[in-house]
Computed example of a mutant assay.
Amino acid sequence: MILLLRHGETHWNVERRIQGRRESALTPRGERQAAAMGRLVADLIRMEPPADWRLAASPLLRAQATAQAVAARAGLRIDTDERLAEICCGDWEGKLRSEVGAGGPEWFFGAPGGETFEEVMARVESFLADLPPEPRRRMVVVSHGVTGRLLRGAYAGLPRAETLAQDVPQDAVYRLAGGQVDRFDCEPID
């Protein structure tokens, strides 16, 4: 089982600025989202038979801050894994979405100097391949919007269009288990 979540809201999310590998701190709302996800993860872990759970997070600060809130609530130690980092958006990082004509999720893969769909998919598939097999797998994963979409798509064997059409909330936890993906929404924070 994998419990997968996206980092809480950042200042650049609010500004509609492209983050990619660049850093932007969590907003106060993002901090509340991270705390709510931490509570939900702790509850979901308690509902499972006792097991050794691990927490892996992207090295980017917004994911690390979210992972810290989850780790504190669930009593876990954070392992950092570069393969969980957000897509590199090359020359577009730091720019407003409106400046680059951002559209649907496919546009992320057109950034000059950025990563391709295949490169990000290779990272998440490598991460999944290195995990213990189900049903022994017990992982909490904190990642990002694009990377999380691709991780869920790789796990579920979805085609590219369905993978990219998935929602990327900052207030929910996805459970990947038994070949299916289930969404659990956090308590409202506003």
Rank of each mutant, 00 (worst) to 15 (best):
E162C: 08
D43K: 10
T163N: 10
D52C: 12
R32V: 05
E125S: 15
C89V: 06
A51L: 04
R138I: 00
R160I: 11
M139T: 06
A34V: 03
V142Y: 04
A65R: 13
G103S: 14
R123M: 01
S24T: 13
S126R: 15
I18E: 02
L84A: 15
A67L: 14
S126C: 13
R39W: 04
I45F: 01
T147L: 05
L158Y: 11
G101Y: 13
R22T: 10
R160E: 09
G101S: 10
A156L: 09
L40S: 07
P132A: 14
W53E: 01
P112F: 11
W53T: 01
A69S: 15
L55T: 00
C88P: 01
T147G: 10
E86I: 07
P135Y: 06
A65N: 06
C89F: 10
V141W: 09
L158A: 08
R83C: 08
P159G: 14
Y155L: 10
E115L: 09
T80L: 09
V41C: 02
P132N: 03
R136Q: 13
P50A: 12
V142M: 07
Q64M: 13
E93Y: 06
A42E: 07
R97M: 07
V70P: 00
D43G: 08
V120A: 13
A72T: 03
R46C: 02
A57Y: 07
T80D: 08
R22C: 08
S126K: 14
V140C: 03
P132G: 01
E82D: 10
E134M: 15
A57P: 05
W107N: 05
G113H: 12
E125C: 13
K95V: 03
A129Q: 11
A102F: 15
Q19K: 12
A74S: 04
G148M: 02
E93N: 04
D43C: 03
L128F: 10
L76M: 09
A67I: 02
A57D: 06
A122Y: 01
R152K: 07
R136W: 07
A69E: 10
L76E: 04
A156H: 14
L150I: 15
R137A: 04
R54F: 05
G157N: 07
W53R: 00
E125N: 02
R73P: 02
V41M: 01
E82Y: 07
A122C: 10
V124S: 12
G114P: 04
W107T: 14
F108Q: 01
G145C: 03
Q64N: 04
E119W: 03
P133N: 12
S143K: 01
P50M: 08
E119M: 11
T163F: 02
R97L: 05
V120R: 06
H144G: 12
E134V: 15
G110P: 00
A74K: 09
Q19N: 09
